[in-house]
Design a protein around this nucleic acid. Structure first.
Lengths: 211, 211
DNA sequence: ATTATCTATAGATCTATAGATAATGC
DNA sequence: ATTATCTATAGATCTATAGATAATGC
């Protein structure tokens, strides 16, 4: 899921830089920005803490580059899934499933996004947050569906809360929410069931007739 | 919403202790456990930072007492709303609306719970998290509904994700999710609309026929 | 030669303790 | 007298800098 780009062999430095970003994603997801220690990240990579500053000017900028690339990747992934589809309902389902697939495949990204949702208004950590590009894609689809008469008139905010909120919780709360055994969010059967539930939900909220 | 208990006049100390808990709820919600400073909390209360330690042995135990009381309050509030109702569907709707009303009335609690959801497995901060009492109430209702044949057979985990996940996002993400103007989660009209959407959602997922 | 990493540590916080002092309420 | 609060600071971290050293790859 992490962009691997050009196949050219990486220099040692490039490899280290990427390893830092990958370790940072894990650690920021696990502990949150404040509690995550540069020491941990460095240890994962196999260098000393101060080595990180050769690649990133500060902890904050490391975090910001990371979250920026998560959003970029999510946007690109979603857009590629939508390409070709024109029907609003179909596009809405493709987008929802893309989000779920992305989060399931990259749970550390999901957890970082969920943490950003818990942070109130914009601050240094989350300037425009989860929002912007990815969300405006969803809003656009809902707007189209409504104006074409396919969807009932409903504020897109509610659907965002329902769909993206529950997707993030599905991926992040396996241990906490499961009755006895924690379910495995990446289990294809589980994912399939959840997709059909999301579909039922959207259909009910938008008052789409059977399909 | 915060328990006011016995009307007896508070001693100065009791008043300060409660003021600390109230300020702590705001600050932990706003910044998260790590970034919240005892200095801020003390300032809100009108004492110096070290004064907090007269009432609480440590920052962690202050936080734990706070989250414990949030869960206790949510449980009591939910149970009082459920009292009398026996029909599973009615109980499910009462519980859902109770959760939403609670979170709307006490958004700082909602944000603290959302933060706890973002924290992976149990740690010092969130021993059994959101879970336990309140969630098992919901699970019990779903189990009853299924065994009585009123609900279709669905894992309660999915409904928890949908309902509680989206409720938390509804309350916490007003600024981030609203298109232009932030919506006001406490606006009764907005709350009413969201309740009807949650109802549609639950009905669709549980395959309850019209009502 | 240039790039990458290390050691050592300065500087900035933040929690928590100790001991002094002020306010409360029987 | 007891309860509540203050001042001052110890002790523990953690990020980030400076300068030295080792590894890389043309």
């Amino acid at each position: 899921m992490i962009a691997v780009s050009s196949g050219r062999k990486l220099t040692k430095g490039e490899a280290t830089r990427r390893a830092i970003l990958i370790a940072a994603e894990q650690r920021f997801a696990e502990f949150g920005y404040d509690a995550a220690r540069l020491e941990m990240i460095a240890e994962d990579v196999g260098i000393r803490q101060a080595g990180i500053f050769y690649y990133f000017p500060s902890k904050l900028e490391l975090f910001q580059e990371l979250t920026g690339s998560i959003h970029k990747d999510l946007l690109a992934f979603t857009q590629s899934r939508l390409s070709g589809a024109t029907d609003p309902w179909e596009r809405l389902m493709l987008l929802t499933e893309a989000w779920l697939d992305f989060m399931v495949a990259r749970p550390s990204a999901a957890r970082i996004i969920l943490r950003s949702c818990a942070n109130a208004s914009s601050n240094d950590l989350y300037p425009e947050a989860y929002s912007s590009d990815v969300l405006s894609l969803l809003r656009g689809i809902i707007r189209e569906g409504i104006s074409s008469g396919r969807f009932t008139n409903v504020d897109s905010m509610y659907l965002v809360n329902l769909l993206s909120g529950s997707i993030l919780h599905y991926v992040c709360n396996a241990e906490q929410l499961a009755e006895e055994h924690a379910y495995r969010p990446e289990d294809p059967v589980e994912v399939g069931t959840f997709k059909s539930i999301l579909r039922k939900t959207a259909r009910a909220v938008l008052e789409i007739d059977g399909r």
